[in-house]
Computed example of a mutant assay.
Amino acid sequence: MNLQQLHYVVEIVRHGNHLSAAAAALSMSQPGVSQQIQLLEQELGLEIFSRTRNRINGLTEAGTIVHSIAQRIAVNLGELKTLKDHIAGGDRGTLTIATTHTPARYLLPHVVRRFLARYPDVRLILRQGNTEQVCAQVEAGEADLAVSTQAGGSFPNLLRLRCRDLTFCVVAPPTHPILSVPELTLEEIVRYPLIAYDGHNKGLKVWKAFAAAGLEPNIAMSGMDADLCKTYVRMGLGIGILAGLSFDAERDQGIEARDASMVLPTSEIGVALRPGTYLHPYLLDFLGSVAPHLTPDVVRRAIRDFDSDHALGSSPVV
Rank of each mutant, 00 (worst) to 15 (best):
F247S: 03
R162G: 07
S29Y: 06
R113C: 01
H293Y: 01
P103I: 05
L273C: 08
V271E: 01
A243D: 14
Q137E: 12
A62H: 08
A136Q: 11
I269Y: 04
V33W: 10
K202L: 14
A25V: 09
A117I: 09
S222D: 11
N54M: 08
E142I: 10
K202Q: 14
T175C: 03
N201D: 07
S246C: 06
L44V: 02
V138I: 09
R118M: 08
G78Y: 11
G254H: 11
L107F: 01
V75I: 13
K81H: 14
L264F: 03
A21M: 09
C135Y: 13
G288K: 03
M1S: 14
V190G: 02
V181W: 00
L159I: 07
R14A: 15
P177W: 02
I239C: 04
P177F: 05
G223E: 11
Y232S: 01
H86N: 11
L312A: 15
A21T: 15
L228M: 12
G141Y: 06
A62N: 12
I219H: 10
L3G: 06
V318Q: 03
N130A: 03
R123Q: 15
T102L: 14
P156Q: 03
G254N: 08
V299Y: 01
L264D: 00
P193M: 09
L3F: 07
E250L: 05
I125C: 08
R300V: 07
N157M: 10
R162K: 10
M221C: 04
F210G: 08
Q4S: 15
